[in-house]
């Protein structure tokens, strides 16, 4: 990763905060976007969640105690925002009549260029409960260590391993059901 062009002091100082935060946004946008997109899957949703993530970060700069890396702090906000987004979607879908609900499919998404297997994998991931989805994405795609994940999510390593194991089983079942 490129060296940050801002410091925590600059982020805390009201005089330098705006410029420093601009540098922070430039530095972390691609990584945060990738992480959010894996969870919410669609570009428009990922764009909304990413903007909300940076807005939350801006509004809570004074609450950042500096006891973890800025990137970890941002990842946490991004994960919380992604979870909130999924929760909102689920509530909206449950309110909609199943017949009238807008059918979204990665197949018709112009910003998804995976093959058939990748599309099915994403569909299988979408069936997972939110937290399992996050654990699976972090482990399977980003190959994050359980210890780092534990720090990020505030969950024990044992619980994360169990969560990943369950997610894998469910995805396998999904693929088996297609055969």
């Amino acid at each position: 990763m490129a060296k940050p062009k801002f410091s925590i002091d600059q982020l805390r100082n009201p005089e330098t905060r705006y410029v420093a935060f601009g540098e922070l946004v430039r530095l972390y946008t691609p990584q945060l976007y990738a992480q959010i997109r894996r969870i919410v899957q669609y570009h428009e949703d990922a764009d909304d969640v990413l903007q909300n993530t940076f807005l939350k970060a801006w509004q809570n700069l004074d609450n950042f105690r500096g006891d973890c890396l800025v990137s970890t702090w941002l990842y946490r906000i991004a994960l919380n925002e992604s979870l909130s987004h999924l929760e909102r979607c689920r509530r909206t879908e449950s309110l909609d009549d199943a017949d009238n609900a807008a059918v979204r499919s990665l197949e018709s998404d112009p910003y998804f260029d995976g093959d058939e297997t990748e599309r099915l994998l994403q569909e299988a991931i979408a069936t997972l409960p939110e937290k399992q989805r996050i654990v699976f994405n972090l482990k399977y795609f980003e190959e994050m260590k359980y210890e780092s994940m534990s720090e990020l999510l505030g969950t024990s390593v044992g619980a994360l391993k169990a969560s990943y194991h369950l997610a894998v089983k469910k995805i396998e079942q999904y693929f088996n059901s297609l055969d």
Partner: peptide, 12 residues
């Protein structure tokens, strides 16, 4: 029996 890791990011 998970599919192999795509090795690239299918999201554009």
């Amino acid at each position: 029996s998970l599919p192999p890791h795509p090795g690239h990011n299918p999201f554009r």
